[in-house]
Design a protein around this nucleic acid. Structure first.
Lengths: 205, 205
DNA sequence: CTAATTTTTGGCCATGCGGTCAGAAAATGA
DNA sequence: TCATTTTCTGACCGCATGGCCAAAAATTAG
């Protein structure tokens, strides 16, 4: 989303600043994936990175900003990868198949990042106690999936159905494919994704 | 699972004991549903129940036991309700439809219980830091869903497919139907469930 | 009624948390 | 080289947590 010298903000980040932020985010991802969100304290993240705890406070406004940066980083990594692969597709069927297979392929190489993403997603809360990212944070994803399904309906590839329910179901199938594979690493991710293609293509036909 | 005087354990629970445990569990459910697992402290649960914090320690071995009792209680509530409704069904198609519709019906009347269940499921950890209930806690559910799908395959109602992937997808569709409705209470739960029936029956046909 | 037992209270404890800060160290620039 | 700025350290703060316990209160038994 942000290249490196946005017109909006203040001075550009120094080299050290960028490197430290990246290092701290990477450490946070690894710690969260290993011990879970609740036990991923700043002290532990700092220790794992081999730095003093104060450095995190120096480079980030607080724990919440660090977590949000991690989410942005990991999430845009997925989006960039998947959207690039979908660009060539012209049919709704092709878009659907490519989306499912590409997401699975990306998961294979980003296990810890996605585990951390899920932990933060489920646990981070605003100061008032309400979830920072709840289901409501999926709205953008739901809308882009609905666009594919409506496109398929408009071309006659797909039957009529509630596109919102289909998008929710699709999204949850992908999330749980990852969660299952994260718990059982020997599970065949690609085969799972191919099964999902079959399931959803039959469901919409 | 446990009626009221199991042969296994020690002395039966006194009346006061049972009442207090039920009261504390109910309070825990409401507090967790409202402020989330992380902020649901024993102090808050006690205050919400109008009792002193020490009472909880007196009636439960610790916070973990309280949480596990809540999970057992809510979970067996679902299982009892859904299994009773499924008893009359003789076809795999009927079992599948009944399962989806009955789960949705149960959700409608047990919003806070299920919100609390989800919070505990996602957040409770063993002393060593590993999840108390992860995806692996779904094994029993997956197996019972797989039994339905394999039954349908054996009668020729359903095509051949990977029953494990189907069970995971089915289970996640139900979980997210609830999560979406919990976030958007005006969402039509019954219509959602009927869409799921359509989706899965087409997927297996 | 009295003694024994169960239950409740409210304060206390050690622990770990996120965040802050003064000063040391390192990098930068003239 | 030396002054200035950036970066880092390690100690410290206030706070909330889960758990503990002595004593009070309530209940039960004889």
């Amino acid at each position: 989303m942000r290249s490196e010298n946005e017109a909006s903000g203040q001075k550009p980040r120094s080299f050290i600043e960028q490197a430290r932020r990246a290092q701290i985010m990477a450490s946070a991802i690894e710690v969260i994936a290993e011990v879970g969100f609740a036990k991923a304290s700043l002290a532990l993240i700092a220790k794992h990175a081999g730095i003093s705890k104060g450095v995190i406070s120096y480079h980030f406004a607080g724990k919440d900003e660090l977590m949000e940066q991690v989410v942005d980083h990991v999430y845009s990594g997925i989006a960039d990868f998947v959207l690039a692969r979908m660009e060539g597709e012209s049919t709704a069927t092709g878009l659907l198949r490519t989306h499912l297979l590409t997401v699975a392929e990306h998961m294979r190489d980003h296990r810890v990042q996605l585990m951390a993403l899920g932990e933060i997603f489920h646990n981070l809360r605003l100061p008032d106690g309400s979830p920072r990212y709840g289901i409501t944070a999926n709205e953008e994803l739901y809308e882009s999936l609905e666009r594919i399904y409506r496109f398929g309906q408009s071309t006659g590839e797909f039957r009529r159905f509630d596109t919102r329910v289909m998008a929710i179901t699709h999204s949850s199938a992908v999330d749980n494919m990852f969660a299952y594979w994260a718990a059982y690493p020997e599970h065949d991710l690609d085969a799972h994704a191919r099964e999902l293609v079959e399931i959803f293509l039959r469901a919409v036909r």
